[in-house]
Structures are given as structure tokens and as C-alpha cells.
Amino acid sequence: MKTLTIYPINGLANRLMALISAVRVATLTGYRLQVIWEKDQSCRAMLSDLFEADFDVISLEEFWKQNQAKKLTIVDANDAREKIPEFIDRNDLEIFRYDGLLILPHALFIRESILLVSHHFFFTEDDSNTFNSDRKRMAGLLSGEFSNFRPLPILRELADAYSEPLRRGIGLHIRRTYPHALTEEGLERELTQWSFPSVDYYMNLLPVIRDRTGLDGKIYLSTNCKVTKSEVVTRLGEANVLTYQARALDVSYSVAGIQDAVVDMISLSKAPLIIRFNESTFSFFSAMLGGCHQAIVYRDGQTLLKGPLEY
């Protein structure tokens, strides 16, 4: 049987974007889906630590052992060339890209074995023609595929506990507010592009959003910074802030921390509106799951209210 192998890379939300895309593409094309899932500094949990799924999950080492004798077609969506052995011919395929989405040409699916390295949405050429480059409709289509990933029961139960308290609430996702990144050795180094809006900015924005939307319920806070959590709780009052951050604040990105991030992602999706930074795929994925409206904060200080699924 023809096989589509997806190798999702980078952080949790990036990987899930690629995975739900792969589920749909495999269904449309009749390919058997196989997933390579590797731990790295961005995600130290295996897929089985987070979700129940109905497809084969293997390691990168196992994949190359199984396919050494084959000529594979490689679709490298993210310049992850160091992961692709030189002996594979990858010059016979055109890749179409626009607006950050990868469009796979219909002609690709005459190949027996395809390996796609990706961290974002991708579609078949037929899909892109049907939806006329409307990313909102594309995201809506893919959000339904997430039913193929069932969070482990304990994670789902924790997230479901926030359904009622957030009926008129707001989800608030604040990434680390200081320049921060993790190297392979776990050492911090500064990167200016990792600098995000301050807590003050979000706190000043919150009453404006409440006034414009009429949402007067509790805040669900998702952050990966202990100082940020403490400041928001102090400013808003402990009774007004819901959060599940027992382990997600662990900067080592441990298995337990990634499990808590799944709880965060699903819990955010329970709110009618999410305030988020525009470059955060994590909070966009949450908005996509819940069909949430969004208040999107940009680096230049502007904030735009957008509907569900708009990126």
C-alpha cells in the first residue's frame, strides 16, 4: 500500500497543524498514514504521552531502517535538510508555497512512498482550488480532523472542568515577555525576535476588550512564565483567574509540562474569545479548536478583533 509519512517538527501546536493536515491528505489520496515523532528541545513528549491515535507512530531511526532500499519522494516544507540523507533524490518535485501554507500538487500522489517534513498546515492542490486560498475555510475544514487525536482521558477531564466557568470568560495567552530561547544544551540565549508584548500591554487591553465584547467572566491564563503568571494573578485577583500551570512552567519542556500544555490548549478553546500574540501558533490552534473569536496583538502595538479561525 502507498504510504504518506509525516515528520512533524518544532513545538506542539506546529506539530499538530501538520498532523491534522496529514490525516486529511491521507484520507483524500488513499495513502496509509505513518507518523515519525521525535523528542527534541521544543517537545520532549511522545505522541502517546498526549493522545490516543489510529495510525502508526515510529522513530526516525526506524523509518530509515525500513526505507534504506527505497527511492523516496521528499517534500521538505521547512528547510530541515540536515535530517534528509544525501542518497535520496529530491530534485524531481516542485513545491508550491504561499502565505505560509504548503500546497501539494496532485501529481505528487503517483509516488509509492512520500516523506513530508512539516510544521504547518498543508493541503492538496485540489483543496486549494476548491477553497480559493481562503485560509479561514481551510482551517475550519482541518479543525474537524482533530477528532482523530483523542487527548488522554485525564488530560481531557482536566480541560473539560473549565467549560462552565469560561462561558462568558476570556482566554489569555501570554508567552515569555523576555528574550528567551533554549539551545540543544538547554542553555538560554537571547534572540530579539523572541521578545513579546509586556504584561502591562495585556492588562491595559483587557478592559477595552471586555467593553467591546461584553464578556465579563473569568480569565483563563495560559503562559510559560512563572513571573507572568504571578503578575497577572496579582493584578486581576486570584478569584478571577483560572489556570492550569502546575507543570507547564517547567522550562525543561518535560513530558509532564507538555501534558499540561495540552490541557492549556484545550482549556483556552473553551473561552468565547482568546487574546493572543499574532505569532503564536499555540493560541491560534486553540482558537481553531473552539471556534473562538480572537483579539490579536501585533508587535507594532495594534490589536485586531477577528472571527473564529482567522489567522
Rank of each mutant, 00 (worst) to 15 (best):
D92G: 14
V233D: 01
G217T: 04
W64C: 08
P197R: 04
S143C: 10
L187A: 15
L152E: 00
Y98N: 13
V208D: 03
E62Q: 15
R168S: 15
S267L: 05
F96K: 15
L72Q: 06
G291V: 09
D126S: 12
N240E: 11
R235A: 10
L33R: 06
E38Q: 13
Y253F: 06
S198M: 04
P153V: 03
D211F: 00
S21G: 14
Y98M: 09
E38H: 08
I20G: 03
G257I: 04
A139K: 13
F146Y: 15
R299L: 05
T73E: 12
F149V: 05
L101T: 12
L249C: 06
G30M: 08
L142T: 04
T5I: 09
A295F: 05
D79N: 14
E310W: 03
A45S: 02
L249P: 10
S230K: 14
H173W: 05
V25E: 04
L166T: 12
D250N: 13
T228S: 06
S59A: 02
A107H: 09
S198L: 04
K39T: 11
L215E: 01
F121E: 11
R150K: 14
G140F: 03
Y220F: 10
E164L: 15
I275P: 01
E82Q: 05
L304V: 13
I266Q: 02
I258P: 01
A159G: 04
R156V: 01
V35A: 07
L206H: 05
D216Y: 01
D134M: 02
F277K: 08
A159L: 06
L142G: 06
F123V: 15
R135H: 14
E82P: 00
K39A: 09
C43P: 03
A80P: 06
L304R: 14
F149Y: 11
I114N: 04
F146P: 12
Y298Q: 09
I9D: 00
R32M: 04
S252L: 07
D160W: 00
G140P: 01
L72S: 09
T223C: 06
G171C: 09
E185W: 05
T183Q: 05
Q259I: 03
H173Y: 08
A246C: 02
V297T: 07
I266L: 15
G217E: 01
H119F: 06
S254Y: 01
I274S: 01
P165L: 08
